[in-house]
Design a protein around this nucleic acid. Structure first.
Lengths: 91, 91
DNA sequence: AATATATTTAGACAGTTGTCTAAATAAAGG
DNA sequence: CCTTTATTTAGACAACTGTCTAAATATATT
């Protein structure tokens, strides 16, 4: 869980995830959405991959990134439980 | 939202929140749950407070911390929307 | 094989973060 | 008022992070 929260703590990485929600995308197209170098985006993609939030697959010259929806759902549940406990109030 | 994610990215701070879910607590009692100095805990409490995740109120010599349940719920909704989009799949 | 395209890796560097110790502030009780 | 207790603030420092440039790798095309 720590890796996931660390991964989510950066705005660029959250925006990458938002892009991938719209559909799979190759590294270059992802990078075109940001004002930083492709090398830096590659670094962010690695962190998201280490957290298991995304997956990658080579297709010819390009590498296509996609959401790992399983981990997305698990994280949702985890966060939901975490915050839900707090918002119920305690008797 | 960025401050909230940054705040959540540290394990100590997440554990502080978990403690506060169980009920309000003063700074010293919070610190007793961790192997780091009270000064460091104070620093973490500040970050959580800046993110509006917790509130504080002095009561005599002690300062009592409590969850800001409003922001807790808002964050839950935000995260829910964020992750939910991704787990629905795209047609 | 040589070149072009797509992406990653390596190394460097500045800025941020988590921690510490020491000093400062605030309230309570002699 | 002086001391004790509770907590924060300030300043220092090592570790981590996000970024860059330059070089490396992998595939495709000629």
């Amino acid at each position: 869980m720590n890796a996931i929260f660390k991964a989510l703590s950066d705005p660029t990485r959250r925006k990458i995830l938002e892009l991938l929600i719209e559909g799979d995308m190759n590294a270059g197209d992802i990078a075109d959405n940001f004002p930083i170098t492709k090398a830096s985006i590659s670094h962010h993609l690695n962190i998201l991959k280490d957290a298991d939030l995304i997956m990658s697959e080579r297709e010819g010259q390009t590498i296509i990134y996609s959401l790992n929806t399983t981990v997305f759902q698990e994280t949702l549940k985890w966060v939901y439980d975490f915050f839900d406990k707090g918002s119920e109030g305690h008797e």
